[in-house]
Computed example of a mutant assay.
Amino acid sequence: MNALARRRYSKSAPVLLVLILLAALTAIGFVANGSPADAATATADDVAEGQKLFAANCASCHGLDAQGTDGVAPSLIGVGAAAVDFQVGTGRMPMQASGPQVQEKKPQFDAEQISQLAAYVASLGEGPAIPTAEMVDPALGDAAVGMEIFRTNCAMCHGSIGGGGALTQGKFAPNLWSTSNTHIYEAMLVGPQSMPVFNDANITPENKRNIIAYLDFQQQGSPGGLKLGSIGPVAEGFWGWLVALGLIIASTIYVGARAS
């Protein structure tokens, strides 16, 4: 019996099992993150057109091979389609002028050209893909959960309701009320400028959508009258007491003046 077991056992079996396990994990990660050329199911023509646009508009700073230029612009190898869609889609790139922070402006390219640029950069190396419509749909998120996550991870820069705030050295966290849901999700994925990266291990895709639901709720107006910073009943109660006490004091003074 032992002789039969020894004949069946192979010394290479553990190595093969480890290799199979590593291949399976790699495949799972590849599917989860999207392939390098997964910029909205890009075609070879999209990549080719994107390369032309890149050479004409981006290569002067990022280099013809997109490997960056020291002291001028970073490498784009591996940044993914999401980074391009955010930076170009918000008009931050191509950059208009140097400064502490790249300013948002009207996009220079239309949606098709942005998609082509994203496809080309995505083809250079694996990186975050552009989120799908379902991933950024606020109707599928939970605004209450999103509020907790946003105030834990984002409010210290963007404010408790996404209204923006000042940072150091002339930088600032922008107002998020006019930012598209897709760009909000992409910003969490790629961490533009001073913003940290919130990958799926930090904030899950579901909770990213919950944050978007919370920010979307802020644009719907206050259900309780004046927003007063939208920080909840504390502000409204404070002003209520302030106005009420003011009226009481004013009436007391008036009555006293009349009596004398």
Rank of each mutant, 00 (worst) to 15 (best):
D142M: 06
Q193Y: 04
G229N: 07
M156V: 11
V31N: 03
A235C: 03
A82P: 11
I248E: 06
A250D: 00
V121T: 07
I20C: 14
P100E: 02
L247E: 01
A155K: 08
D137A: 12
G71C: 07
K227M: 03
A155W: 08
G159H: 07
G164W: 10
L245W: 11
A13E: 13
A23C: 12
P138K: 01
S123T: 00
P100A: 03
L21F: 15
Q193C: 00
N2F: 06
A187E: 01
N175D: 12
D46P: 00
A3D: 14
A24Q: 08
A83N: 10
I212C: 10
M135A: 15
I20P: 11
S60L: 14
V145D: 11
F54S: 04
V145K: 15
A111V: 11
V88I: 14
G29L: 12
K208M: 02
A13T: 14
Q220F: 03
G162L: 09
F198N: 02
L4G: 07
N153A: 09
A27P: 07
A83P: 01
S12F: 05
D70V: 13
Y254M: 02
A173N: 09
T41D: 14
G127N: 11
M1L: 10
A173F: 11
A32E: 05
L167F: 09
N199F: 07
P223Q: 08
V255H: 10
A257G: 03
I130Q: 11
A118H: 10
R151D: 10
I149L: 08
V72L: 12
Y254K: 09
T90I: 02
E112W: 00
V15S: 06
G141A: 04
R8Y: 00
S12Y: 02
A122G: 15
E186D: 08
P223N: 04
A133C: 09
A48D: 07
A235E: 13
A56T: 06
Y254R: 13
L226E: 12
A13N: 09
T26Y: 13
T204Y: 03
G29K: 00
A48C: 02
I20D: 06
G256N: 13
A5V: 09
N33K: 07
H62T: 03
D46H: 08
P196M: 05
A250H: 01
M93I: 08
A39F: 10
G164K: 03
G50K: 04
G141N: 08
N57P: 03
L140T: 12
A23P: 10
I161M: 09
P107K: 00
D200Y: 05
V234N: 05
Y9S: 15
A42F: 04
Q116H: 09
S123V: 11
